[in-house]
Simulated assay, not measured.
Amino acid sequence: MSEIKRIEVGARMSEAVIHNGTIYLAGQIGTPGKSVAEQTQECLAEVDRLLALAGSDKTRILKAQIWLADIASDFPAMNGVWDAWVPAGHTPARATGQALLATPEHKVEIIITAAL
Rank of each mutant, 00 (worst) to 15 (best):
I29C: 09
T96P: 00
T31F: 01
V9F: 02
A52T: 15
T96A: 04
L51C: 11
T113F: 04
G33N: 08
M1Q: 11
A72C: 02
G33W: 05
I4K: 06
Q65R: 13
V17L: 14
L62Y: 01
F75Q: 04
A54E: 12
Q98C: 06
V108M: 05
V81Y: 11
W82L: 15
R49D: 09
V17M: 13
A93S: 04
D57I: 03
A99C: 02
I4P: 03
G10V: 08
F75N: 05
T113Q: 14
E38L: 03
Q65D: 06
Q28Y: 00
E46W: 01
T31G: 04
W85S: 10
P92F: 05
S35M: 05
P104S: 13
A99I: 05
R49A: 05
T22V: 15
V86T: 04
T96C: 04
L51T: 14
P92T: 06
D48V: 14
I7L: 14
E105W: 03
D74F: 11
A11M: 09
I4W: 02
K107G: 05
E8R: 12
T103D: 05
K107L: 09
L25I: 09
V36Q: 03
T113E: 15
A37F: 02
A52W: 09
A54G: 12
D83R: 04
N79I: 09
A88N: 00
G21K: 13
L44I: 05
L44M: 15
I111V: 13
P104C: 10
I112S: 12
V17N: 11
C43G: 12
P92L: 08
Q65M: 00
V81Q: 07
T31L: 08
